Simulated assay, not measured.
Amino acid sequence: MSCNGSSSQPSAFTLAGIPGLESAHTWFAIPFLMVYIFTVLGNCTVLFLIWADQSLHEPMFLLLALLAAIDLSLVTSVVPRMLAIFWAGAKEVSVHACLAQMFFIPSFYVMESGVLLAMAFDRFVAILQPLRYTTIMARHTLVKMGLVIVVRTVVVLAPAPVMANKLVGFRTHIIAYSYCAYMAMVQIACGDTSNHVAYGLMVIVASVGVDLLFIGLSYGFILQAVFHIPSKEAKIKALSTCGSHLCLILTFYSPVVFSVLAQTLGYSMAPHIRVIVDNLYFLVPPMVNPLIYGVRTKQMRERVLWFLRCPGT
């Protein structure tokens, strides 16, 4: 659609859901609902176990609790709205609600990335400074790390709704996503949007890019230290403490790395594939994170089995 005679910012936008697959929206809603249910149950279980068991009030598990809380917030900000589109056809969203979603959804994602970096630092200290671990990873350190994660998120993402609100003139009022995404709105805007594209790249570099860099550095030092351990059993034990966290990293960053590589190599994804992949950013990690820690972490397995045990057995 041409920008000639384009109007100012509308009072509402229309979310397309999954473009090109509108007839299958009802069927797509079923797996999304199942993912949401499993995510809520899994993360609530993690939060309850850590809250109820004093022995789990260690830095690693407190960071896991923070991760679970962020995961719950992330899926709750995404899935109910998607289900309203798929089942009730509630595609219209007000500008203010759209701008709010534009801020909060990526904010929770960036916060989760920050928590994964904090967990990498936790493993770094546990392996390289085991005697000082309790001192370094004290409660006040965790609080400071949490504050840094929140402040970084606000500083990086607060400009998004402000800049988007200043866009005037649109080719269409239909956003080809199942949620209000900043770059999706920029793509339908008229005029020069180069500053918006530059800001979008800056967000990726300043959040996910920085976190991946420091996570890589942390594990570089960890591996260097582990390979200098003479005992094979000690090496395996040291690496096993990082196993769950490495699984979280692979699950969380794989979709975004795949998407960036595809765009860099010039591979153009169909609109519905791009939307589905983008949804994977927000839905898969929160669902599998509790499973990863529940299966791979002995303390969590023992607590789950203890709570599931029948009374008197």
Score class of each variant (00 low, 15 high):
A164W: 13
V148M: 09
M185A: 09
S178K: 08
N289W: 03
Q263P: 01
Q129N: 03
Y267R: 11
F307H: 06
A184Q: 11
F38N: 03
S107V: 02
P271N: 07
R301H: 12
G169E: 04
A120C: 05
F28Q: 03
T193K: 04
M119L: 15
A12Q: 14
I174L: 13
L201V: 09
A118G: 12
G294V: 01
S8L: 12
R139F: 07
P59S: 11
M102D: 03
E112V: 01
I149Q: 09
P255N: 05
C190N: 04
E302P: 02
L21M: 11
F86P: 08
I188K: 12
L157M: 12
K298T: 10
F13M: 10
V155S: 05
Q54T: 07
F252S: 12
S11E: 15
L248K: 14
V203L: 10
A120I: 08
I276V: 11
N289R: 10
V208H: 15
F282R: 05
L47M: 15
F221D: 11
S207P: 06
N289K: 07
V210C: 12
A69H: 06
N165Q: 01
F13Y: 12
A65L: 04
I149V: 10
V162A: 12
W27E: 06
I105W: 09
A176S: 14
I50M: 12
G5P: 11
S240A: 07
A88E: 04
R132P: 00
L283F: 02
L213R: 11
A118P: 06
G200T: 01
S11F: 12
V208Y: 14
S207L: 00
C3S: 10
M82K: 15
A69Q: 05
D122K: 09
P311R: 09
L83K: 12
Y109K: 01
R296C: 00
G42S: 02
V78D: 01
M287S: 10
A181I: 05
T26V: 09
Q101F: 02
Q54Y: 08
N165W: 11
